[in-house]
């Protein structure tokens, strides 16, 4: 596929995920939970995880308000991390960050949808919007206190 074609597909994906977010909602008794907020933009995300005894993320849900990029990124995240081990999810944080900031393909990513994050690197002022949920994920998995921010 041409570069322009890939970009168009990624753009459509981001719009679609922002309008029809997957795994939107909350969990009643999550094993892990964290919040992120970028007060300047008004973007907010709450992430809920159920991590089973085997260390696998059985369920991921999120609630969010904000721009299309922050919503789409959270929807892509929740879709991607379900079924991953905790360590794999933390590794995915690093990979997502690399895609968002460099725009390059990252080895180990075979998720065609998640690759849409590479498009965001084209808009340096918006990387913080897409990053918010990922930093929230790391906060949740570390069991750390406090609201995270990427501003």
């Amino acid at each position: 596929m041409s570069a322009a074609g890939a970009e168009r597909r990624w753009q459509d994906l981001i719009v679609d995920h922002s309008q029809f977010p997957r795994h939107h909602g909350s969990l009643e008794k999550p094993t892990h939970h964290a919040e992120g907020e970028n007060p300047l933009c008004g973007d907010r995300v709450r992430l809920y995880l159920d991590v089973g005894a085997s260390g696998t993320i059985d369920k991921a849900r999120f609630e969010a308000t904000g721009c299309a990029i922050s919503l789409a990124s959270a929807s892509l995240l929740a879709t991607a991390i379900q079924g991953l081990k905790r360590d794999q999810a933390l590794q995915l944080f690093d990979q997502a960050r690399a895609m968002l900031t460099t725009g390059e393909a990252v080895s180990g990513i075979d998720d065609a949808e998640l690759e849409a994050l590479r498009l965001i690197s084209r808009f340096p002022m918006r990387v913080k919007c897409a990053s918010l949920c990922w930093h929230t994920l790391r906060q949740a998995l570390r069991g750390a206190e406090g609201t995270v921010s990427t501003e």
């Binding site: 933009c41 008004g42 904000g66 721009c67 299309a68 990029i69 808009f123 002022m125 918006r126 919007c129």
Partner: peptide
């Protein structure tokens, strides 16, 4: 209800 940042971009 489109976020202003999305419009601007």
């Amino acid at each position: 209800d489109i976020h202003p940042n999305d419009i601007g971009t």
